[in-house]
């Protein structure tokens, strides 16, 4: 699946998007896999309550299943307007 990062999440991880091969069943499991990879992921996901997630461009949550999802995005709370 395609994983996207925005704002300071993008900065901490050091890239805006990447293709991730994962068997994770939920968003939380995907985050666990990413965090186990490298320190920069652990730094980005250190406080999950400070993060939001969108699945196929719809806001979702960390318990959500990933079955059929093509695009996952992680970002801080939005500051539009």
């Amino acid at each position: 699946m395609n994983v996207l990062y925005f704002a300071w999440v993008r900065e901490r991880i050091g890239l805006p998007r990447e293709e991730v091969a994962s068997e994770a069943a939920t968003v939380a499991e995907l985050v666990d896999e990413l965090v186990a990879r490298e320190e920069r992921y652990a730094a980005a996901f250190a406080d999950r309550s400070a993060l939001r997630v969108a699945l196929d461009q719809e806001l979702s949550d960390f318990d959500a299943p990933l079955a059929g999802v093509r695009e996952v995005a992680f970002f801080p709370p939005m500051t539009g307007g």
């Binding site: 925005f6 704002a7 300071w8 969108a54 806001l59 995005a73 970002f75 801080p76 709370p77 939005m78 500051t79 539009g80 307007g81």
Partner: peptide
């Protein structure tokens, strides 16, 4: 709704550096 449900992120650049605006 637009302030906290539309995916925009603001970053302020000042003389002292840059910082993401916290929600």
């Amino acid at each position: 709704y637009l302030k906290s449900r539309a995916p925009f992120w603001k970053r302020e650049v000042t003389e002292d550096g840059a910082a993401w605006v916290a929600a």
